[in-house]
Design a protein around this nucleic acid. Structure first.
Lengths: 155, 155
DNA sequence: TGATAATGGTTTCAGATGAAACTATGTTGC
DNA sequence: GCAACATAGTTTCATCTGAAACCATTATCA
């Protein structure tokens, strides 16, 4: 005997607004998009280009493959970003004897200047986001993100 | 008098691996990508198409503009996703008298079947992610995400 | 050695994308 | 009623993208 007041089958539905992957996606797209627009306007940089610059600012001399690994970009993206950055004179490459395939990349003087201007800008954006959180919440967020990132690696 | 053991200027650098927007982006791309691959393979659906189906599964009869609003997609994306879904016979549209511009969309019978198969799959992916967290952490995550989403809206 | 495989990186090709222009329908104010 | 504007949705165009094919160099090993 049915207790429901109707005979419609219960369809499993997905509430996007409470679905974690969706929420992450909306948040991430908004934040990255916002930051990207600001340096796109000022320096004509795309997100991949900026990522390459960010990582080279910290680890000069990486090869394209190493950049790809550290930025979670694929090698095609890196190759194209590097090509554009070079045309714009923002990075330099140098071949180390031993392996003539690998290009060791680093920021040029001009690139360092751009890098130096964007970093505070990016940090400010991050700050504007986390001011919404208490100190305790920021710690929680970091820990939870660590765990989720680890879990996501083995999906 | 300098205390540092070197005279190199301190260059503000950005540690991508601790930079919140970056971490969010990596996590989100991994998760969405993983889910997307699974329904891409089985049903040939793209992310925008799946999002449209998800929201129509829950709110049949929405117009394209309303779908766009609920999914955080733009109207072009929705228009194209709808076109493809229709070609594949997964949604239906109906014009309500009153406004002949608006198309009210809903899943077709075939669309409902696909929808019904993907939802558990998506939920399982979400589950595989959050099992890495304690119950308390899940609550924290939800609250923190609420706050970040609100903050990100006014960046 | 020299053949085969592996690696670093680039190019090609076909499809995806977003911004802006466009078509069609509705609304507003006179 | 009708000119001007707003809205729903589509199309166009130029650019971006990822997968696979590709080239060059280095490693493996019979």
């Amino acid at each position: 005997m049915k207790l429901e007041g109707h005979n419609q089958a219960v369809i499993p539905s997905l509430e996007l607004e409470t679905f974690l992957p969706y929420r992450l996606s909306v948040l991430s797209n908004r934040v990255s998009g916002r930051i990207a627009r600001s340096y796109e306007k000022r320096f004509g940089l795309t997100i991949p280009e900026w990522r390459v610059m960010a990582v080279l600012g910290r680890f000069p001399g990486l090869t394209a493959a190493e950049v790809a690994e550290r930025t979670a970009m694929d090698k095609v993206q890196v190759s194209r970003a590097v090509a554009r950055l070079q045309r714009a004179g923002r990075i330099e490459q140098r071949t180390v004897d031993g392996d003539r395939r690998a290009k060791h990349l680093s920021l040029s003087a001009a690139g360092k200047i751009v890098h130096g201007e964007i970093v505070p800008l990016a940090r400010e954006m991050e700050l504007r986001l986390v001011v919404a959180l208490s100190v305790a919440e920021r710690t929680q967020l970091d820990q939870v993100l660590d765990k989720l990132l680890a879990a996501s690696a083995s999906l």
